[in-house]
Amino acid sequence: MKKLRVILCAVLALVMILCAPQNVYVAAERQMVYVGGFPIGISVDAGGLLVESVTGVETEYGTVEVEGLQKGDIIKTVDGADVLSVDDISELLTDEKATVELLRDGRLISVEITPVIEAYSLKPRLGVKIKDKVYGVGTVTFVREDGKYAALGHEIYDGETGVHIPFAGGHVHACKVIGVKRGKKGEAGAILASITVEKVYGDVVCNNSFGIAGKFSAKFDKSELLPLATRDEVKIGKAQIKTAVNGTPEYYDIEIIKASKQPSRKEKGMVLRITDKRLLDSTGGVVRGMSGSPIIQNGKVIGAVTHVFLNDFTKGYGVYADWLN
């Protein structure tokens, strides 16, 4: 009888192990990441030439506007030839009509344009200010042990035109914080930073509603390794963010005041409030450039800061780590 009880106990123990393997594996396979919190410069290719503004062409008769182009257009081709730089436009334009293929409001259209001869250069011009890249500043959320990173927490778009940039690749660069612009009524503040374009730290392989991602090709300052949390582990209450508003990444106290149930990938899963007096004195709350700052709770990375409340700079949104790239 005693021997039977021993056998039954052994069988029961084995059944308990076999019936609960998931918890064992979750603990063993929880992903560890280096906590970010440091700023990066970001350049994203426009996939053509973005019309930043319509300026007109200076002629001997005054300023003449060229009909057909609008602010926010992305010029793709001129007479069938791809344009990827400002120099491409100069080489392709003549004083005759040209067929320009462009993206406008997400639609690919063709327009007929007649360039105008500029007075001082005697060259054909379109009368627009254009650029082939969009630049910005953001914060790295975390870096995986293989060098793959997640940053920003939201899509990068052109701040001058407000245009969504179809993803065509990009890079991350060295970035130095030089100051902070505090927010004012209806306008968010911003981290002021300089980007060293010549110093390329890595690539950008995606740009979507949940931020940018890529891989560092240069060495970065490795910080502590922490596990990534699932959205179900996020709780209302105290937490911290790590950010570099004064140049050096530091931890600041916050409070999670709302954590939405999100069965599928969505933005703005959390609402947070800055409670740290040091950060409030420095920035007034959440500012642009802080996007991507990792949110840490109970020793785990739970997500990233994404947006600020324009009617209350002490509050902002966060995205769950589950949804980051």
Rank of each mutant, 00 (worst) to 15 (best):
residue 289 G to K: 06
residue 80 G to L: 10
residue 49 L to A: 09
residue 178 I to D: 11
residue 202 G to W: 13
residue 116 V to L: 04
residue 146 D to V: 12
residue 111 V to R: 14
residue 52 E to M: 09
residue 101 E to Y: 03
residue 109 I to K: 11
residue 151 A to N: 01
residue 173 H to D: 04
residue 178 I to P: 03
residue 222 K to V: 07
residue 241 I to P: 04
residue 306 T to G: 06
residue 99 T to I: 15
residue 165 I to H: 06
residue 60 E to G: 15
residue 307 H to M: 06
residue 244 A to L: 05
residue 8 L to M: 15
residue 113 I to S: 01
residue 30 R to V: 08
residue 254 I to P: 01
residue 36 G to L: 02
residue 119 A to P: 03
residue 237 G to T: 06
residue 280 L to N: 09
residue 221 D to K: 12
residue 84 L to R: 14
residue 182 R to C: 01
residue 316 G to H: 08
residue 117 I to G: 07
residue 297 Q to D: 03
residue 127 G to A: 12
residue 127 G to W: 00
residue 117 I to L: 09
residue 225 L to C: 01
residue 323 W to C: 02
residue 206 C to K: 13
residue 250 E to F: 06
residue 8 L to K: 15
residue 301 V to W: 05
residue 234 V to D: 01
residue 273 R to W: 05
residue 154 H to Q: 06
residue 211 G to W: 01
residue 118 E to F: 02
residue 128 V to C: 09
residue 65 E to V: 14
residue 296 I to D: 05
residue 293 S to P: 03
residue 252 Y to K: 00
residue 234 V to L: 04
residue 152 L to C: 07
residue 239 A to H: 03
residue 13 A to I: 12
residue 13 A to E: 08
residue 12 L to M: 14
residue 88 D to W: 02
residue 37 G to K: 03
residue 107 R to F: 10
residue 276 D to V: 10
residue 299 G to T: 14
residue 32 M to N: 06
residue 2 K to W: 08
residue 11 V to N: 00
residue 267 E to Q: 14
residue 46 A to H: 02
residue 85 S to V: 02
residue 159 G to M: 10
residue 79 D to M: 10
residue 245 V to Q: 01
residue 255 E to Y: 02
residue 64 V to H: 11
residue 275 T to F: 07
residue 196 T to S: 13
residue 106 G to E: 00
residue 133 K to F: 10
residue 156 I to N: 03
residue 223 S to Q: 04
residue 318 G to P: 05
residue 320 Y to K: 04
residue 142 F to I: 08
residue 199 K to R: 14
residue 217 S to M: 01
residue 170 G to N: 01
residue 103 L to F: 07
residue 309 F to D: 14
residue 21 P to G: 04
residue 157 Y to M: 11
